[in-house]
Design a protein around this nucleic acid. Structure first.
Lengths: 191, 191
DNA sequence: CGCGCGATTGAGTAATTTCAAATCTAGTGG
DNA sequence: CCACTAGATTTGAAATTACTCAATCGCGCG
């Protein structure tokens, strides 16, 4: 399916735009393709844009002082990603985003999003719902991280994204769950 | 300060409403006061409303099978709280909300919020930003939970809400940080 | 074939939990 | 004013869990 059509259907789920409105909206998006392993945002960068994933898989991650990686999000098709904190607050990036596989995206600048939200009420409605979904998902993950043991979180993740299992290396799954790769390995090999 | 004025200033920080628009918006809010210890939402309840805190302190928490409590949010003045997952998805509450101190709130139903967002573009803008703030805070906490040790998270929490220190019992702080009260006690008594 | 990356396994260590008991504190009634 | 009580906090000790570090295994690719 064509990029434009994917975005159209994605937005249509929460907001009704006329053909003309959608064309106008779409004209602000810029297609960007990336190769496996390519970096999209690095810590310290100025962040101007957010990315809507059309195909492939990105990861948004944080590297701490001891060079340990924590994955905040696997960005799969129809998900949005960026360093939203840096984007909205106009500060330098504190997280990194790169490509687990080849990927196609549509990107939108912070200024254009705000402009479009201001000009078109249905667009603002869409972005409210998008953010809301992210918020609810984040709250759910927070609760899961505190309440569930690693095994349960592992099953939860695979239930949410079955395709991850043979798409990403296990040590990235561990970095998402917040445990060492050894612990994860022992978990699903014990029975 | 009067309830109406608190809400007005809170909203004015991100959206410009005319006096008339604000009066219309405000007419949908209902003042509700609670006593210390009173329950606002219980697991299993039907959730129809969200709450804007004017004074006092609420807690939103989850109780697991082993009767362990995890605190998702301390709701302080000018914060919003509810079981947002249940509210937006029209499902039964999975978390509880009650009062740590006497508290005054303004409450708004899910239907009214959606109606107001639909009728008034600036109101939708406001709620997009409110949700966005919540999302960014949630992401930050997630990262902190994975990356920082308990001591650092404790300091972070007190930096964010200095008033919590002598407002809420320590075991609630522990339930927010995701550690046992014993561990927290040992932490800040060691030197 | 051999390199390199990812995954697994083992052993010892560090941190946190649980359970139990002791201590402290604020508020209540006599 | 004092004794009493409930809730909150602290402390001790054993058990659990995950971590780190190191070594090994497995497999795809040049």
């Amino acid at each position: 399916m064509e990029a434009k059509e994917i975005l159209r259907q994605h937005i249509a789920r929460t907001a009704s735009l006329t053909d003309e409105q959608f064309e106008y909206l779409f004209s602000h998006f810029k297609p960007l393709s990336f190769k496996k392993g390519q970096t999209i945002i690095s810590e310290g960068d100025k962040v101007e844009t957010e990315y809507f994933v059309l195909s492939g898989c990105l990861k948004a991650f944080f590297i701490n002082d001891e060079a340990k990686m924590y994955i905040l999000q696997f960005a799969m098709p129809t998900w949005w990603t960026s360093d939203f904190n840096a984007l909205y607050n106009q500060t330098k990036a504190t997280i990194n985003i790169d490509c687990i596989t080849d990927a196609e995206t549509l990107c939108l600048t912070n200024n254009d999003r705000e402009k479009l939200c201001n000009e078109l009420h249905p667009v603002e409605h869409f972005f409210r719902w998008r953010t809301n979904r992210g918020y609810l998902a984040s709250q759910k993950r927070l609760l899961s991280l505190m309440n569930n043991d690693t095994k349960k979180r592992y099953e939860e993740l695979l239930a949410l994204y079955p395709e991850l299992y043979n798409l990403v290396p296990k040590h990235l799954i561990a970095a998402y769950l917040g445990v060492s790769r050894e612990t994860l390995s022992r978990l699903y090999n014990a029975h």
